[in-house]
Every structure is written in C-alpha cells, then in structure tokens.
C-alpha cells in the first residue's frame, strides 16, 4: 500500500488514486501527421524503465486532481515531481 503525495491533500493511501501511466507519453499534437508505426508506439509502448519513472496519478477519491510523481520502480521511493509537465 503505497503512500502517494497528493499536492493538494498530502500523503494518502494509494487506493484513493488511479495510476495514469508514464507522463512521457504525450499525445502527439497532430495525430494525422504520424505514421502508423509512430501512432502504435504512442498507444502501446512504455519505456518500462527500471528506476525512477515519472507518472501521472489521479486522486479520484480525494481532490480529483491529476498530478505527476517520480516513482522508483525498484525501491518504490516516491517524490513529488520536481517540475510540472504541462
């Protein structure tokens, strides 16, 4: 049961949240100009990095904010993301 640091509510149990996956997966500005391969890559592939990953989390049972954190996928150490990704 991870503790997720919600920027508004503070530390809360992970069952108040839903994970939104890697924040590096940004929707292409112009999907029409992507190739099928690029589009598939966006849809289906994550870096799945062993180490610190920046992720979106949604505080669904709380303030309902979406925010990013940095999570170490090996040790589960969690920090609020140092800069917001817009």
């Amino acid at each position: 049961m991870l503790l997720i640091p919600c920027p508004w509510c503070g530390q809360r149990n992970e069952d108040e949240f839903m994970c939104g996956g890697e924040s590096a997966r940004v929707r292409p500005d112009d999907p029409a100009s992507t190739t099928d391969a690029q589009w598939s890559d966006y849809l289906y592939n994550s870096t799945n990095h062993k180490g610190v990953v920046r992720e979106w989390w949604w505080h669904v049972n709380g303030c309902t904010k979406w925010f990013v954190i940095d999570r170490d996928t090996v040790t589960h150490a969690i920090q609020p993301a140092s800069e917001e990704i817009s």
Partner: peptide, 17 residues
C-alpha cells in the same frame, strides 16, 4: 460512468488544460 468521467477529466487536466 467512472471510466467516461475519468477519461474526460484526464484529458482536461493533462492534455487540454
């Protein structure tokens, strides 16, 4: 319902602010 709401909230807060 929760999926649709989550889907739209996510887009509004993370992609189309």
């Amino acid at each position: 319902a929760p999926v649709v709401l989550g889907h739209m909230e996510r887009l509004l807060q993370t992609e189309w602010q």
